[in-house]
Design a protein around this nucleic acid. Structure first.
Lengths: 343, 343
DNA sequence: CTACGTCGAGACAGCGCTACCTTAGTGCCT
DNA sequence: AGGCACTAAGGTAGCGCTGTCTCGACGTAG
């Protein structure tokens, strides 16, 4: 019944199959499969023969067939809240760099800082039976959480640590970053410190919280100087909020911005209006985006290890996907205060 | 032999299958398949029954099995030269927006402006038997070209038009953009016009070429005022090149930058050094990045339809993947000169 | 009332690969 | 010397889905 299948069946892909490789190498298909996957129980000599045959035929596995037979895909889903500020690009790049060489396909989803959209993406991407999930932060819908739980797919959380309870996560303490920001501005002798944050994602809020706590401790907290808006972070918005704040509170002498683009916008508006930075107002940014060091004056900022987080998270994911547990599931990658001219 | 498979076979995914949906709906598996795919030869009544059953069971197709059986994946590969300036993000987003709702999976590859890396990505991604290729520009290795040709996979080229010969492409004329830039600066009465470009990708070169041609026509072309560097485009680099050029050619009175980040860097350095923009030097950018309108002075720029290009390219791809030919394979999406304070 | 075309539904088989089990072969202990 | 654990290779079957062929039911024309 197997005999001759020499007719031109249009259902095939036309590409060489593992069977042909095996035939050419003079081994059974299953041995060829094992040889190419690097399963240990194949003699070195045979492995070489198979590899040569595969090369000769220009063979590449059919991922669909592999996924079907093994009930496992080779894809890892990464969900990020935004691509349009450069924050997550570095992280994504690093993830690619680690995962691609190991044969994993990276599926990127952008949920635009929307919990519902994240849930949607999650639901959609679950269909691909991903081997792993790389998620941003801990703030998500209950359904999302249940879906992740129920799926039993290894999951690494990126960017935050503050609410890591027995989860695998790689990031830094957003709270501590906020405290550091406050500490730095206080050390400059400032008394009227404001926080301006946009997007209002969990991380922005946590940074604000850290900032607030530090100010409370110093007895300098004023809720009026906390400007939060759900609008999305941008240079234009930064300038706008900066001017608004100064108009209503002319005595403000330091501002911590939740993201560098906001701070950059503030610097530009300050220049336009002749407001002296840092003499009148000290300005501190967050994330240390590439342009920040070139602003006038050069923007002080808290530099975040975005690339390192991506790399480490991907490495952790590899460990988890191999069925091992991670020795140190919570990885604090820290952050670094870059003091420049604006403070 | 088929009889009872009631034992817990670990090879299954554990998710509901089409068979179970069919059983619940009281139809044959193949009918269920057709019903869910929207194949026309199924009675409306049955379609509804199947859809209800699928919903009840929370059924989602197994893409691997589908791909294997139909010898067709549902993935589309998009290769872009960079993610780290915002250029291609808008395009990618638009592509996602069009392709995802149609059930296509978007695989993103970043080739970092390297032809070899693009070839590599192409080779790797070919293994997934993508249904379509969305590529950036026409400048690639001969092997890449052959691979694309041989694969017989529909392909849409984005961003450029200038060398579109019978290919499907969506973009705008980079040459014309360069000419427009020159025309604008000339209309401001400038005589010593420079072009500063980085990265040296095909598009940057084409814009330079358009710019040069226009200057030659005006009899104002000076090769010394053409600064090209393979270094990657950034705010810092822009400032650096700007200062260098002014140091060696203090008489320059207008500069067209190949990308806005370079121009932004120039504006910042100019401010730092007290160089009056546009009085001493007019500065024109390219791409109209979000921050440009907020610079001091506000940066004039040529705005490019990045989002529209992505959308249109994806739509074209849908047409091609459906087996149809595109009525208008070359789509010129144009560009728009935004005149602001810097010129 | 019969013949024929059309259309909706099902049976069958197979896409390319790998999990599982079996078999053959090796060395080592009792 | 026989049995046992262990390793290396192969045989078998099936992952979940869809392309293709087949069959039956229905409606219309002669």
């Amino acid at each position: 019944m197997i005999s001759s299948k020499n007719d031109k069946n249009t259902r095939t892909t036309g590409r060489p199959t593992l069977n042909e490789v095996a035939r050419l190498a003079g081994v059974s298909p299953i041995t060829a499969s094992r040889a190419l996957r690097g399963v240990s129980t194949v003699a070195t000599e045979l492995v070489e023969k198979v590899q040569k045959a595969a090369l000769d035929l220009n063979y590449v596995v059919n991922p669909a067939a592999r996924a079907l037979a093994s009930a496992q895909s080779h894809s890892v889903v990464v969900l990020v809240p935004s691509l349009s500020n450069l924050l997550f690009i570095d992280t994504l790049e690093a993830i690619h760099q680690v995962l691609r060489p190991k044969g994993f396909e990276v599926l990127i989803g952008n949920f635009h800082y929307s919990r519902d959209e994240e849930e949607n993406l999650l639901r959609n991407y679950m269909a691909y039976q991903p081997r792993g999930l790389l998620l941003t932060g801990f703030d998500r819908t209950e359904s999302s959480r249940r879906m992740i739980e129920a799926s039993n797919i290894p999951c690494v959380y990126m960017m935050e640590l503050d609410s890591a309870a027995g989860l695998n996560c790689v990031g830094f303490s957003q709270l501590a970053a906020g405290e550091t920001a406050a500490g730095h501005l206080l050390s400059r002798g400032r008394k009227r410190l404001a926080y301006i944050g946009a997007q209002l994602d969990q991380r922005t809020l946590l940074r604000g919280e850290g900032f607030r706590k530090a100010l409370q401790k110093a007895g300098l907290y004023d809720p009026d100087l906390e400007v939060l808006t759900p609008r999305s972070s941008s240079v234009g918005l930064g300038g706008e909020l900066f001017l608004q704040l100064l108009a209503t509170h002319p005595d403000v002498d330091a501002i911590f911005f939740g993201n560098d683009d906001l701070a950059q916008g503030a610097l530009l508006e300050a220049m336009r209006c002749g407001i002296k930075i840092p003499e009148q107002v000290a300005i501190l940014g967050f994330n240390d985006l590439p342009a920040s060091a070139h602003m006038v004056p050069r923007l002080s900022s808290i530099s975040t290890p975005r690339e390192a987080i991506g790399r480490r998270a991907a490495e952790q994911m590899l460990t988890l996907m191999a069925g091992n547990t991670v020795a140190k599931p919570v990885q604090d990658m820290g952050f670094e205060l870059k003091v420049r001219e604006s403070t």
